[in-house]
Amino acid sequence: MDKRNEPEAAAGERPKPLPRGYFEGESMTRRHAFTIAAQGIGGLAGAAIVLPAVGFAIAPIFERGKERWEAVGPLDDFVEDTYRQVVFTETQGIGDAGKTTAYVRKGSKQLGEDPREIIAVSNRCAHLGCPVRFVEAAGNFICPCHGGVYDFVGKVIGGPPVRPLDRFQTRIRNGQVELGPRYSVTSQLEPVRARDPGEFTGGIWEYLYPPRPSTFPPPSG
């Protein structure tokens, strides 16, 4: 605040003349008002540039893609005691880079699964996302990157992965097996919303790794 505006001057000092335009009871000087106005307008202009740019950059966090289903072969192609590898498009419009691999089989009565069910296990390692491979002879999924090993149903039996392999929703249309959105599972194979590799599922981790708007709800049941 401009000292000159304080009408009472210190004892012994000659009172300074009041600035032009001063009126009794004004709350700020003209200079001060203009400073605030100029900074306010500058701030608005800055926000007008920065806010849209930031929004543009972070918008994808809040976007959910369209639910896609893709046929991967007739029902008869799949058996219950081993997997069949299928390749399908998870992200459209970017060629081969948008493709992903799933291992697909029928539900097995021996493992306590519904035989009418189709099980599609994602090859995306639950450690940090490398592509795992189903090794027929061992009956295991093996990751090339850091030695993660998963058993026949995708539960971790070795290495650094933090949860079982993800799965894809499945359905049968016109005798064709179709794969849909990805979901993750807890260590007990209960479905939850898709999580990124490296993130635990179940218990408190459901809150520490919050489900993102870009994922689909898990299949019920």
Binding site: P60, I61, E90, G98, Y209, P210
Partner: peptide, 26 residues
């Protein structure tokens, strides 16, 4: 990107920001 994602609470959003979506793509 997945290592970034292992940070609790903000990690998943950070990965989505880096990838511009749930999958690494165009």
């Amino acid at each position: 990107i997945n290592i970034n994602g292992t940070g609790p609470v903000v990690g998943p959003y950070l990965s989505d920001f880096l990838r511009a979506g749930p999958e690494l793509g165009a």
